[in-house]
Design a protein around this nucleic acid. Structure first.
Length: 414
RNA sequence: GGAGAGAUGCAAGAGUGGUUGAAUUGGCUCGUCUCGAAAACGAGUGUACGUAUCAAAUACGUACCGUGGGUUCAAAUCCCACUCUCUCCGCCA
């Protein structure tokens, strides 16, 4: 969430940025609730002060009948006002939580089509076999049996398909560790407070991409970003510790309901995939620099695998609620002749941190919200697609990218 | 899943209804002493919101002793539910 004090001072900016993100929020109504809440709170506090004074006056001795009567009167008044305060606070919180993060000045304004290419790498070759055909022919992937045991868009990776995924995973984890990130495995479920705090839709939201566990306060994670955000919840970090760099590996579970019209062939959009995710906690003044660093690590990874790509600066209308700025790295699909999303990195500034109360104590003793950032190192299923499209040989083999060979018994072909 | 014990500030740990935001010890910060350090001594050491006041510093008020509710004129303290931790039993990779 945003800081209410920030909203009070920048109401117009917040309202217009929310609109440009495509969110419907009534800032005026929010500020109205804010005023009412403050007024009621002052009244309640005033009554409590009276009650406390009365209590102090009675000290060790038994209160008089008059004091008891006054006390009862105060109790009832406090309860009464308190209930009204709670009702208003609830409305206030609901609206406040609906306000999305503002976005950076250099974010293009508009819908998806307004996103701007920042840089690109490699040529745009065409041809070769589609990843699903290539993998199915070699029995590297089995969607039919995936459907048999779970449902549509579930799959088994098999033999070299599974081994190749494992190799990419190992390579990428090591790559990121060498950049100074600490490797973590994470809980594959999080409680709703964590899920919502990280910016994932609440259970009540029918559009939610999350799987919820029946009768439990738990959701399957859609990304390791959720547990990595919650990792430092309710903590006060020291200035010296920051920035903190984590890399998590986990399966990602997504309902993907209503994704009609989106590219869903093969492994591109599935209900479960593995992902290596970078995550950073930074001082406020560091986050933009760290965002560029995370983006450059993503670029280095895909350059080292020699996959052609472009990086786009995502337009306002396509940013999620928590994101201040987001880059997507899109690989060039050799078989389809289009760019498709491969990784994504976002600077969420203090939006997630405020939800989960993650602060830093500065050298002068003041407290600030930290900034949080996330970036995909490798979504394994999509990484498989990119590599299979670009490393097919004319005689129907898969040439193993050089950097992956140490993780595949030094084979040069599969 | 069953039985029991517990959750208090940075940490350990006291506190079983009323000057308790909270004893004590340790840690940490600052100061005195010292050529310097140690020791000793002295002082300080939470967060949120609101008001004074536009901001900071400060002062005052309110809230916070796992979470949520309840009893009471008054709750860290009594009652209920939940969460988590530990021990034992069962089950289990």
């Amino acid at each position: 969430m945003l800081d209410i004090q920030f909203i009070r001072k920048n109401a117009e900016t917040v309202a217009s940025k929310a609109q440009q993100k495509g969110y419907q929020v009534d800032i005026e109504q929010l500020l109205g609730f804010d005023e009412e809440r403050k007024y009621l709170q002052a009244e309640v506090e005033d009554l409590r002060q009276k009650r406390n004074n009365l209590t102090k006056a009675t000290k060790g001795q038994k209160p008089s009948e008059e004091q008891l009567t006054l006390g009862r009167q105060l109790r009832d008044e406090i309860n009464n006002k308190q209930h009204r305060l709670e009702a208003v606070s609830k409305d206030f919180d609901r609206l406040l939580n609906d306000v999305p993060n503002i976005f950076a000045d250099d974010v293009p304004i508009g819908d998806e089509s307004a996103s701007v290419e920042v840089t690109s790498y490699g040529d745009k070759p065409r041809g070769g076999q589609d990843h699903l055909d290539f993998m199915s022919e070699r029995d590297w992937v089995d969607f039919e049996r995936g459907a048999k045991v779970a449902g549509t868009k579930f799959y088994f990776l098999k033999g070299n398909g599974a081994l190749l995924e494992e190799a990419i995973k190992q390579y990428v984890i090591n790559f990121v560790i060498n950049k100074g990130f600490t490797f973590l495995t994470v809980p594959h479920m999080v409680n709703l407070k964590t899920a919502v705090g990280a910016g994932f839709s609440p259970k009540s939201d029918k559009e939610s991409n999350e799987y919820f566990i029946e009768n439990e306060d738990l959701a399957l994670i859609g990304t390791a970003e959720a547990p990595l955000t919650g990792y430092h919840a309710n903590e006060i970090l020291s200035e010296k510790q920051l920035p903190l760099f984590y890399v998590g590996h986990s399966p990602c579970y997504r309902r993907e309901a209503g994704t009609y019209g989106k590219h869903t062939r093969g492994l591109f959009r599935v209900h479960q995939f593995n992902k290596v995710e970078m995550y950073a906690y930074t001082l406020p003044e560091q986050s933009q620099e760290v965002h560029e660093k995370i983006r450059s690590i993503e670029e280095e990874i895909w350059q080292s695998l020699n996959i052609p790509y472009r990086v786009i600066n995502i337009a306002s209308g396509d940013l999620g609620a928590p994101a201040f700025k987001k880059y997507d790295l899109e690989y060039w699909s050799k078989s389809d002749g289009v760019y498709r999303e491969l990784t994504s990195c976002s600077n969420c500034t203090d939006f997630q941190a405020r939800n989960l109360n993650i602060r830093v104590k500065r050298a002068d003793g003041r407290l600030d919200m930290v900034h949080t950032l996330n970036g995909t190192a490798s979504a394994l299923s999509r990484s498989l697609i990119a590599i299979i499209e670009h490393y097919q040989t004319d005689d129907g083999k898969l040439r193993v990218p050089e950097v992956l060979r140490p993780y595949l018994n030094n084979q040069d072909e599969l």
